[in-house]
Design a protein around this nucleic acid. Structure first.
Lengths: 248, 248
DNA sequence: CCGTGTCGTTCCGCACTGTGGAATGCTGTT
DNA sequence: AACAGCATTCCACAGTGCGGAACGACACGG
């Protein structure tokens, strides 16, 4: 970021991000190590965030994210979903299958928008739902953006649980699949999350959070021939979505 | 709040909250009206938030919440859910039915934590799911905390759709029900969201976001006699949850 | 219980960072 | 093209944010 922002706001956001990345709670010393800020500075900023409900102080004198963060997160999800939905609707219209937009969230992906196919037999994925990375199209597309070491770390932490007997459950197999995804530019979930369901997914370039766009449906309709037609559409729409998400 | 915080952080949070409350996008003038801050101040703060991905600037020069907000919101939800779950587990253990924790989110409630009953026949409510206020126990408990004018406003915006033929669908009926809820200190969803399901809910005192705790299950088991036993437990646990959520 | 070590909290002088009025630029409408 | 409304930039200034030092709180071990 070439243009410096308001320093104290940046610092407060840094602290919130550290708490989110730690996934639990942290003491001031940990926050100091991670942020490089002096304790009194952190203390003052955390006091502000606590007072506003965006962080909470535990009896152990450690800090965690606060309830008001949920509200902002939900609102953002709805707004982004609304903005993205017209782009996803184009996928659904042109390809005739269900389009989904998902973001990287820790060791999982979370669906933030959807446009449904007009078919009676179609994918239904609830917005806000979190799914494993290794067994979904969007998840594998997101993993393909990470270095192998990060993929191994995620695999260690989240595990590679089998959703079906087609799910990749060993990290070497996964890494090989990701190398292929990187080379060809899209991911396929071929019955790995749900038997009889196929999904093609691509990365949304330029999104502030790693984001993937997918089209999916019954394998009978979403064939590999379908995929050859679908992938260019996905790439094109992904660019539009990325432009919308990164506006600014 | 007796203790003033870091002013620029407070102001940045104010702007994010205004964007969330507006539910869509806003121009700088609107943000200025709502916040009382001068345009250049807002512009600089928004520039910082946009650069960090917490807000986006639209081609129309309007602003909306950004993708990184989702991530923080999800992390907060998980952390708070984990913290609340041990309290909810106590409800589930003592009462033998499913306990849920939900927060007010615009004109809806969103579930943030759950502890399931050990019965095979039980409530299943996915964390992150949003539900209507007027037709759920937690929702009515939350509405009971609002002035009548605010309830009317929400009813206007969100509507009073019937989930079942027992759902309250007129605002005067709803206001009468809320008056009763306020007087007796708990809410009941008596087959209003789902036929054959009953739910008792109370407010979590002191939570930074309006929050409600409920216990629910099949009406055959969750009788009014059950409710007489359950409500004191709910109130007690709600106080514990409130203390945990408001720590600081 | 007391002492010690570790970590968190408070204080306050200082300067740098955030501020907002004024000027300028941009956009949309007629 | 002109105009009105809104957004963006600039910069002098002072007030707000800062962090080192001192103090307080807590946990642990003897």
């Amino acid at each position: 970021m070439a243009e410096p922002g308001v320093q104290s706001v940046e610092r407060a956001l840094d602290l919130l991000e550290i708490l989110a990345e730690l996934g639990g709670d942290a003491g001031l010393s940990e926050l100091s190590e991670q942020s490089g800020l002096p304790l009194p500075t952190i203390h003052r900023l955390m006091r502000t965030l606590v007072a506003r409900g965006y962080a909470r102080r535990l009896p152990s004198r450690r800090y965690a994210l606060g309830a008001r963060m949920i509200r902002l997160g939900e609102s953002a999800g709805r707004q982004l979903g609304a903005g993205a939905r017209r782009h996803l609707a184009r996928v659904a219209r042109e390809l005739g299958e269900t389009a989904n937009l998902a973001m990287l969230d820790g060791e999982m992906a979370v669906y933030v928008a959807q446009a449904a196919s007009s078919h009676s037999m179609r994918m239904f994925t609830e917005v806000g739902r979190r799914v494993h990375l290794h067994s979904t199209g969007v998840g594998k597309a997101l993993l393909g953006e990470l270095p192998d070491a990060a993929v191994r770390d995620i695999a260690d932490r989240a595990g590679l649980s089998p959703a079906t007997d087609r799910t990749i459950t060993d990290v070497d197999g996964l890494l090989a699949a990701l190398a292929e995804i990187r080379e060809r530019g899209y991911a396929v979930d071929d019955g790995e999350q749900e038997i009889g369901v196929r999904c093609f997914a691509v990365i949304v370039p330029g999104a502030p959070v790693p984001t993937a766009l997918s089209v999916s449906g019954p394998a009978a309709r979403v064939s590999f021939e379908f995929g050859e037609r679908a992938v260019p559409v996905l790439h094109e729409v992904a660019r539009d979505v990325g432009a919308e998400l990164s506006e600014g």
